[in-house]
């Protein structure tokens, strides 16, 4: 079960593009996006009717940030991850449209 492909004994972990920086950037970006969304609804700076699409776009941007950076979906070897999430999201979109327009 636990077969490790270990070659050398003296190995130092080489961490490829996994520095702290992108994660901190994502964190700060998430906070800023949340605050913008909050401001947009609380102070009605955006023409009425556009607020909902606007904050939903902000949420999608934030989700993309977290999926790609925090969950490493931008790195190679995540093809199935993409298939899973994109398929799931597609089903969700269809479900929401169906529920809102036809059911109830």
């Amino acid at each position: 079960m636990a077969q490790v492909s270990n070659d050398a004994m003296e190995r130092k972990p080489k961490i490829k593009k996994d520095g702290v920086k992108p994660h901190i950037v994502t964190f700060i970006a998430s906070i800023i996006l949340t605050i913008i969304a909050f401001m947009a609804t609380a102070y009605e700076v955006i023409p009425a009717g556009f607020t909902v699409p606007f904050i939903i776009i902000l949420a999608i941007v934030q989700a993309a940030f977290q999926l790609l950076v925090w969950m490493h979906m931008d790195q190679k070897g995540h093809e199935f991850a993409r298939v899973g999430i994109v398929t799931g999201s597609a089903v969700v979109l269809v479900t929401i449209i169906a529920f809102v327009t036809t059911l109830w």
């Binding site: 199935f80 991850a81 298939v83 899973g84 999430i85 799931g88 999201s89 089903v91 969700v92 979109l93």
Partner: peptide, 11 residues
């Protein structure tokens, strides 16, 4: 793949 399913569930 489980997370894909969870997406549908929450969706």
């Amino acid at each position: 793949l489980f997370l894909g399913g969870e997406t549908v569930l929450f969706g």
